[in-house]
Amino acid sequence: MKPPNVCLYLREHTGLMEPLVPGPKLRFAHKETASCDFEPGKELDRAINQLDVEAPLLPANLGGCPTDGERLPGLGDEAYISEETDLDDGDWREREVRVYFRVKNLAVCLTHRRAALAALPPDSRKAVITFAHAVDKWVRQAPVTS
C-alpha cells in the first residue's frame, strides 16, 4: 500500500500555498524521500521565502521536524509546532516555522522559512497552521493505492 503523495497533491493545488509562498513553483522534489520544496513564482526583492514538505511513512528521518514540544490540538493523530527566529546572521533576519503531524503511519513535516535583509520577516505561524489543517484534511480523505 502506498500512502497519499502530498507533494503531487500540492503541485496540483498550488493555491493552498499562496498565503505562504506567492505564486508557488516547485523548486525540487525527491521521490525517494517523499519531499519537495516550493518557492515564489517571482523573485522577491532581497528576501527568501520557501516552503519545504516531507511526507514519509514512519519510521523516518524528518530532518529536524519537532516531534515533541508545543502540541497542536485538532491536527492529525498528533501534531507539534516549533519556531525559530535568527537575528544574528549578518544583515539577514530569518523566521522559520515547522509543523509536524502524523496521520496513522504517514508523517508530514511542513517548514516555512522567510528571511529578509534588515527587517524581520512577518510571522507566518497562523498561515502555516491553516495550511497544515488543509493538508491534514486531504491526507485523511486521499485514497491509499497499492
Rank of each mutant, 00 (worst) to 15 (best):
R71W: 05
A132W: 04
P122Y: 01
G74E: 06
E12S: 14
P4W: 05
I48M: 10
L58R: 12
E43N: 09
C7M: 07
L62T: 04
V97R: 03
P24C: 04
N61Q: 07
T67L: 09
L16A: 10
A47F: 09
H13S: 10
I48S: 08
E32G: 08
A29T: 12
S35M: 11
T33C: 13
N105L: 05
V135C: 10
P3R: 12
D86N: 15
L75Y: 02
F131D: 00
D91A: 12
G63F: 08
L10E: 08
E32S: 09
R11D: 14
K2S: 13
T130W: 04
P73R: 01
T145C: 04
T14Q: 06
D123F: 04
L62K: 07
E39M: 05
S35Y: 06
V97T: 11
E70Q: 15
T145A: 09
D91R: 14
D45N: 10
H112M: 11
M17K: 05
V103L: 04
A127P: 03
R11P: 01
P56Q: 14
A107L: 06
P19I: 00
A115T: 04
R95A: 06
S82H: 08
D86R: 15
F38S: 07
D37P: 00
K2T: 15
D89M: 09
N5H: 10
G74Q: 05
L58A: 13
E83L: 07
T33H: 13
S146H: 11
L75C: 02
W138R: 07
A107Y: 00
G90H: 02
Q141D: 14
L75R: 01
N61S: 12
G15K: 03
T85R: 14
P40I: 01
K2V: 14
R46W: 15
T111S: 11
E83H: 07
M1G: 06
G41S: 11
R114A: 02
L20Q: 09
Y80T: 04
N105V: 06
A116K: 15
P56A: 15
A127T: 05
G90R: 12
P56M: 12
G76Q: 09
H13W: 02
A127Y: 03
P19D: 05
Y100H: 08
R125K: 15
A116W: 00
P66W: 00
A47D: 05
L117V: 11
S35H: 07
K25A: 13
F28Q: 15
R114D: 00
F38M: 13
P121E: 02
T14S: 08
K137I: 05
T14V: 13
A132V: 09
P19H: 05
P4L: 06
V139W: 01
R27I: 02
K42N: 10
D89F: 06
D45S: 14
G41W: 09
